[in-house]
Design a protein around this nucleic acid. Structure first.
Lengths: 333, 333
DNA sequence: TTGAAAGCGCTACCAG
DNA sequence: CTGGTAGCGCTTTCAA
């Protein structure tokens, strides 16, 4: 920049003004631009934000469960688009539900002075989230809640979604409904299970503890659990799966045993291609784009100075009937 | 940091040494740490990299086609893991195949002084990639090649993959094979088409221009094209689809017409759940993790000082027979 | 081993 | 409107 100033025969401050589009005599501006071009000048945003009064880096930190999971990917893209509208870029990282990794990400994001954080929290690090916020970095939780104060969250109505699904299954005659749940440390896993319990209770249906399998993580765990449940003397006639990979595992087990047309299955969160299966997988779908957009919105509020207590936006789920959730209970069994 | 120094009664340089783990008398180090703790000191990596001799930001720029696409997501995660091993973080953005967006991303990544770039290039910005490299930022292309010099690339053997698929279909009696291709600006789309042409030629099979549909982008375009092809007087008995979303669209059209068991389909790139469909979708699969890992490896080489000409790593594809590619040609038609 | 001081590239302030 | 100058938080000489 100094070189550009020298070459253009102007002060260094003028170059800065030109680069930042502040009012400068056209003649000078032209000279500066030419010099910048000739010298191959490249603006340095890191130095700029260091000196700038607001110290903004125009960077957001995004903490996901696993960037490779289609669910996380959809959130990522939604946040990216919202961020781009505000001229912000995303630093992203995956936790794999490991609080140590989460902590590491939060720390390095903080050290890089991100303007804000959007986090899918593991649920075992609430103090770190609070610490980040106290240090001046607004934090918004996405997909899950947290207990940290002044940390906003946007989630879907997990309980209501599962509850409605249970009612449907009950109405179709199912009395032995199994539940597959993700790690109990995950907020949504607990919420969805709560919805399951509530749904059964409202339907006046018995909750068979032997048909509940929680703390399952990943396709294979669900597949194995489903196999085991189906081998039971009084096997379930329907399954509710609390996460997308678990749904895949459950369906794989069902197809292994050629039971996909006889045993009902409703999954939480949609899957690509779910509609092309025979029968299609019925799901409790969430609007990923809306979740990400809303989370970004809450964050930008905070960046604009909002100082109130934690806000919690709850988005509705939508049931997509594709067949697997519409299988009636077999007469006997 | 100055405050910490004052409080600990040491020089500011000593605090820097402690923070960076350089040798300091244990007694002093202890005092510094305590002061830092008390004052809630948080390291500022942006300022640090500004002053540091190597000027490294420990940040990589990742330019994807669409962060929400499972393919991009898998690459993202693979690169993230490799980056994390080297203590690097990822700035990521999507181009949607728009060279203007790509250019914008490259520019802002450069302004943020990323240490290196891993790019899935739109193919319409090769000069910008070269410009980045000339400015001192090593660039590696992932999934696609580029003509820019000294820009490494890691791709799969697209031609060989499609070629082998064509041969399989031909051996199964297919003589009217359709091809669905993505935007022709995309390098892989052209390569895959080249493989299609070569495969037909080697099999001594006629290339029916009317069965080739290129420049398709997204599920719906492929669905519509597939419908049209199937409505032809001499409809194809088999389809090869050159991209994952196109495969989905093709399969949707096939199922609409209940032809999924009669018309063969082979897709390029695997899809989640593809194995659960009836029939399963046979695909030419690529190892996303390997692609990402390899790309990161090439980049770290460059960061370690490698100055040679562009290197191009070609990874093999693997054919996954799941049924849809094993459907023989109907006797008549 | 330590501390003082210079300065990374930039913006903010102030005097002209 | 413009240029000089101070200084963002840090690392790196360099001398003690």
């Amino acid at each position: 920049m100094r070189d550009v100033a020298t070459m253009a025969g102007v002060g260094i401050a003028t170059v800065s003004r030109v680069v930042n589009g502040k009012p400068v005599t056209p003649d000078l501006a032209e000279r500066v631009k030419r010099a910048a071009e000739l010298l191959g000048y490249r603006q340095d945003l890191t130095a700029s934000s260091l000196r700038r009064a607001d110290r903004r880096t125009h960077t957001l930190g995004l903490v996901l469960e696993d960037a490779a999971n289609p669910f996380s990917a959809a959130l990522h893209r939604a946040v990216e688009d919202a961020a781009a509208e505000h001229g912000m870029l995303l630093l992203a990282g995956s936790t794999d539900e490991d609080p140590v990794r989460e902590r590491g990400l939060l720390k390095t994001f903080a050290a890089r002075r991100v303007d804000g954080l959007i986090v899918v929290p593991t649920g075992q690090n609430d103090t770190d989230l609070d610490a980040a916020r106290r240090a001046g970095t607004p934090v918004v939780c996405m997909d899950r809640r947290t207990t940290a104060p002044q940390v906003d969250a946007v989630t879907v109505d997990n309980r209501a979604g599962v509850q409605a699904a249970v009612k449907r299954l009950h109405a179709a005659g199912h009395r032995r409904i199994a539940f597959l749940g993700d790690l109990r440390t995950i907020w949504t896993a607990e919420e969805r299970y709560a919805g399951f319990v509530k749904g059964l209770a409202e339907a006046g249906c018995v909750l068979h503890r032997s048909l509940v399998r929680r703390d399952l993580h990943g396709v294979e765990a669900a597949q194995e659990a489903t196999r085991e449940l189906l081998a039971l003397a009084h096997a379930p006639t329907a399954f509710i799966s609390g996460q997308n990979l678990l749904t895949v595992g459950a369906r794989m087990a069902l197809q292994e045993l050629r039971l996909q047309h006889r045993v009902a299955l409703i999954g939480f969160d949609d899957l690509p291609l779910a509609g092309l299966l025979e029968p299609g997988i019925s799901v409790i779908a969430q609007d990923h784009a809306a979740i990400g957009r809303e989370a970004a919105g809450l964050l930008f509020d905070r960046l604009d100075g909002e100082r109130g207590p934690a806000r919690h936006r709850v988005l509705p789920t939508r049931y997509l009937a594709r067949g697997s959730g519409e299988i009636p209970a077999a007469e006997d069994r």
